[in-house]
Design a binder for these strands. Structure first.
Lengths: 406, 406
DNA sequence: CTTATTTATTTACGTCGCGAAGAAATGTCG
DNA sequence: CGACATTTCTTCGCGACGTAAATAAATAAG
């Protein structure tokens, strides 16, 4: 059916799952057996792939199969030959630009991280040129630290909060920046003559999750990112072919007519749920220092969550409101999108203990004649091994995969 | 790129645009020239297509081209050979099941309607079997009326309000029916041994519009249907590959905490915008007869619109509220989906004079950092020539294509 | 009237993928 | 220990499609 860039899909599956035999590649990609055979032989000739020695059958984590066979391995039949990505083939850099933070990571072709850096910087104080320079400097630092010659650099992925035009690579608007319509991709491309991909951070996380969790790569899955803002990445059959290429601004769906203030107006979901909103509201009754450039630090937010768990009634109420808002976001997503999966992710979900019970509670009321949807809470840091533009480095610990709706 | 069922795409383009030369087919489908050449020669051999005589160049409605050439036609160069669908190849039936109404239409292979019927029937009083029998009887009546032998019937399309599982063809829930989980497709398929496709009505309309308006077939377009309920059909690159195959239940996105009552709870968009909600609210201050089975007739709704235009202040306020709700629906759609196009359609838009000014007014406030979206109001009756499952027959006159958002 | 130009369509050839059948490597059973 | 069974992988033939070049059929220009 779907022809074209199947080489890329093979590489992607291999990067996600580690060494796999051809049979399993065929199953994962949905390609036919001869197609895999041909593709892999060409990829081996080009030194992207290596054949490793034969291996025991249970590659996949199907526990039922493993139990049936016992744990000794070695079924009968011709043993499988494992295929591995050649780590020496080249290197990949991922940059994540967020509020007051630029994270950079360099990985080999197999996806193992070789080095990474976190640069705290007041992003909203930067102009476009300074931002580019900083990013380029960070990338150069990664290259130096790992002694990577320039021609070894295969690609650079940049994840950015806000509205990103995937076609042009321009960031039209970002809460982390005071400037708009920034073209980060072009200067970086020129500086390193490597392929540069820019994406909305939520889209990047959604893609990373879809790559990490095969179930999410089938059908339509929506990943709601809660943190400095509230964004959403949507992935259809493992790809991010989407409206304007930007992540959804689900945070700016309106809840009530007279709600609290967000960045655009009154009553958006973000105004209840985003870090800055929670911190701002908390300051009305707690003695807290003002946030740096309108944005509370991670430590400040951690303190808030701690106190809420500790039983502060005002804070509990705040997080309860936030949970309601999150439920509305999920309900709106289900109503408009009818996705097969909804994933909640991002640093804001570190407070998920406080949020989730409200989400599920509200949802059963909201979802109406909903079809079954699987709602999961995911670690934002998933798949740091992932390829370009797929790292985001947010917090939020993995919790559970629960079911809600009907 | 996209391989596979390109024969179908050729036929579809031809049905939409009428006779076209191969060059134009190649451009419309995005296929290469030799591919079209091969496909069409096979289709001609199978008698689906005919070659018509050569024709003057301006097939497409590009006014600029026409002006440049003058209107005489006959450019220089080899004249194009027009390809036409062979009307004799077979016949297609479209059924639309709506609240208290079953519409049936039979068309030849070219898409010209040969006969149609409207059956007013209290759909909510029917059980599954009776509904099937009625639909089958209507189809038989169409076959009889046009003297169509059974083997001439190529396919049957059924559009149904509510949640339709496209894979199984089951209607899980519909406001027009009191029964749930109805399998209409299977009995009809058995009765006629023809291909039967079921779809959500909004999805069917969205597909029909995308087929009629090439711009809508590129990227992501959302068609919001306002009428007995509020639904949405989403089309990506001309196809309805979507979440659960069902249309979105955009009508059940919540607006406020304490809004009026809809079918599921309080405060949904539908509770302000759907026919039944408007009529119910109008009865609180106007002396109107009760609606049949919770559903006002078209005549009753027409009366309401007339009085609102006539200047009844209470009704004006009602429609103003409805316009606000529609604006919220559009805003939520833009926020969550980020579509390239938003189309408003359906019988409810016959009151668009009252609604639209509020929609655009509210939108400029709502859409925040929105990207440019084209918002159009479309005739629901578009493309009655369209193929199976694409007819819906709602009202709403074509108005304009305006721009909103930023 | 011949030649150039423009446009529509076909032919030739290469690539990619699928299905079927065969080959290789290992187990199991008599 | 040999005849199967089973699983993995490869080879072969076919169909669908893309690119590039050739051919066909008309008009415009000289």
């Amino acid at each position: 059916m779907a022809r074209g860039s199947n080489r890329g899909r093979v590489v992607e599956v291999l990067r996600r799952h580690g060494p796999l035999p051809r049979v399993e590649l065929a199953r994962s990609t949905g390609l036919s057996f001869p197609a895999i055979s041909g593709l892999t032989s060409r990829l081996i000739a080009e030194e992207l792939l290596c054949e490793t020695e034969t291996a025991a059958p249970p590659w996949s984590d199907d526990t039922d199969e493993a139990d049936a066979d016992g744990l000794s391995g070695r079924r009968r039949g011709r043993p499988a030959v494992l295929l591995t990505l050649n780590p020496e083939f080249g290197r990949i850099i991922a940059v994540s630009v967020r509020m007051n933070l630029i994270e950079t990571l360099i990985a080999d072709f197999e996806g193992s991280g070789l080095a990474q850096s976190r640069l705290a910087v007041p992003t909203r104080a930067l102009d476009a040129g300074a931002l580019c320079d900083l990013v380029i400097a960070q990338i150069n630092a990664m290259l130096d630290a790992t002694a990577t010659p320039p021609d070894q650099l295969l690609g650079i992925g940049i994840a950015l909060q806000g509205i990103v035009n995937a076609d042009t690579g321009r960031n039209l608007w970002s809460p982390a920046l005071s400037v708009t319509d920034v073209d980060l991709a072009q200067p970086v491309r020129r500086a390193f003559s490597a392929e540069v991909v820019m994406a909305n951070d939520a889209v990047a996380v959604a893609l990373a999750l879809a790559t990490a969790e095969p179930g999410l790569a089938q059908g339509l899955s929506a990943t709601i990112m809660v943190g400095h803002g509230v964004g959403m990445g949507v992935v259809l059959d493992g790809e991010a072919r989407w409206g304007a290429g930007a992540g959804s601004e689900i945070g700016h769906v309106k809840l009530g007519s007279n709600g609290p203030q967000c960045r655009c107006q009154r009553g958006c979901i973000e105004a209840y749920l985003a870090d800055y909103a929670l911190y701002r509201d908390a300051r009305t009754f707690l003695d807290l220092p003002p946030a740096d450039s309108q944005q509370p630090s991670e430590a400040q937010m951690a303190l808030l969550r701690e106190r809420a768990l500790g039983g502060d009634p005002h804070l509990e109420y705040l997080f309860q409101q936030a949970g309601r808002a999150l439920a509305e976001a999920v309900a709106a997503t289900i109503s408009v999108l009818r996705p097969h999966h909804v994933v909640l992710a991002g640093p804001g979900l570190q407070a998920s203990h406080c949020l989730i019970k409200n989400v599920t509670g509200e949802l059963t009321v909201r979802s109406g004649a909903a079809i079954p949807n699987r709602i999961g809470v995911a670690d934002g840091r998933t798949d740091q091994r992932g390829c370009a533009a797929r790292d985001h480095g947010g917090g939020g610990r993995p919790l559970s995969i629960s079911r809600a709706g009907r």
